[in-house]
């Protein structure tokens, strides 16, 4: 073991009901803490994988960490605490948000939409120009 599997820790925390925001920050903090421990062990004279192994042992068993975190009910997500209510509220919320989705998508991808629209406008003008030139050549020719 050179480094704890932090992605697995995140999955286990989510599975135990911890709110996603806490999970993301906890894993970031654990990664940062692990790097500090690696720096510490390297300053003690260890190098490479040896330092990382020692740091991982110092950080402790991740299964125990997940269990400890899971024992804090206040860190659990709302949906985990009230699954039946969530099954009603989430679909209703999604339905209510449905009309706003195109607007949100438009704002989120405004640059792409602007480029796409400009390309279509230019292509339309170019085609109209060709058609106009052909028409004029017929009328005047």
């Amino acid at each position: 073991m050179h480094e704890p599997d932090f992605e697995s820790v995140a999955r286990q925390l989510l599975a135990s009901g911890i709110a996603p925001g806490h999970v993301r920050r906890t894993v970031d903090e654990l990664r940062d803490h692990f790097q500090d421990l690696v720096d510490e062990t390297e300053s003690d004279g260890l190098t490479g994988n040896e330092a990382r192994d020692r740091a991982a042992r110092m950080l402790g068993e991740m299964d125990q960490f997940v269990a400890r975190m899971g024992s804090h009910d206040e860190l659990k997500s709302w949906a985990f605490k009230h699954p039946r209510l969530a099954l009603v509220v989430y679909p209703l919320g999604c339905l209510a948000l449905l009309p706003a989705v195109p607007i949100i998508a438009g704002v989120a991808h405004a640059n792409e939409i602007a480029r796409w629209g400009t390309s279509f406008l230019l292509a339309g003008l170019f085609t109209a120009g060709i058609l106009l030139a052909m028409q004029l050549s017929i009328v005047l020719g």
Binding site: D32, L37, G60, M69, S71, L75
Partner: peptide, 28 residues
Amino acid sequence: EGVIYPILHSLERNGSLKSKRKPVGGRT
């Protein structure tokens, strides 16, 4: 080493602590 994080998060959740991210030496 890992014991304090559940306690810190719990204290923040009940309003006793607040947290903020700070970039330090290339890490946050």
